[in-house]
């Protein structure tokens, strides 16, 4: 049930793949154009990462079939997400954890 790999399903998928391909190309052009528009430094960064995340979702979700995978894969990826967040959190903590050296002005 719902494996989605019968010949009819594959034919439907192919249409979806082409749609995503076009969306990814459009996304690339939009990212480049958005970089030339001055929205303020932080907004530019946020927008670029947002577009990249949407593109990443399209690739992972459909090209890598993550929207319809088995539970084992989701479990593996859930662990990855936890560790990835931990890694980034450590980076943020490191950024704020700068020792004050007396008299150095830092």
């Amino acid at each position: 049930m719902g494996d989605g790999h019968s010949k009819e399903d594959i034919k439907k998928h192919v249409k979806l793949y082409i749609g995503i391909f076009i969306a990814l190309l459009v996304g690339t052009v939009v990212t480049v154009l958005a970089a030339y528009v001055d929205l303020g430094h932080k907004m530019n960064i946020a927008l670029a990462l947002l577009i990249a995340s949407v593109k990443a979702f399209l690739v992972a979700g459909f090209f890598m079939h993550l929207t319809s995978e088995k539970k084992t894969i989701y479990t593996i990826l859930a662990c990855t997400v936890v560790f990835f967040i931990g890694l980034m959190a450590l980076t943020v903590i490191a950024h704020f954890d700068v020792p004050t050296i007396a008299g150095s002005g830092h």
């Binding site: 690339t28 990212t31 530019n44 670029a48 990249a52 690739v59 992972a60 890598m64």
Partner: peptide, 22 residues
Amino acid sequence: SGLFWHFVDLVWIFLFPVLYLL
């Protein structure tokens, strides 16, 4: 092998804006 390839593409999706545009 395709899954690996998509991952390589995925990394580039982030590398491109981060290194070239921002």
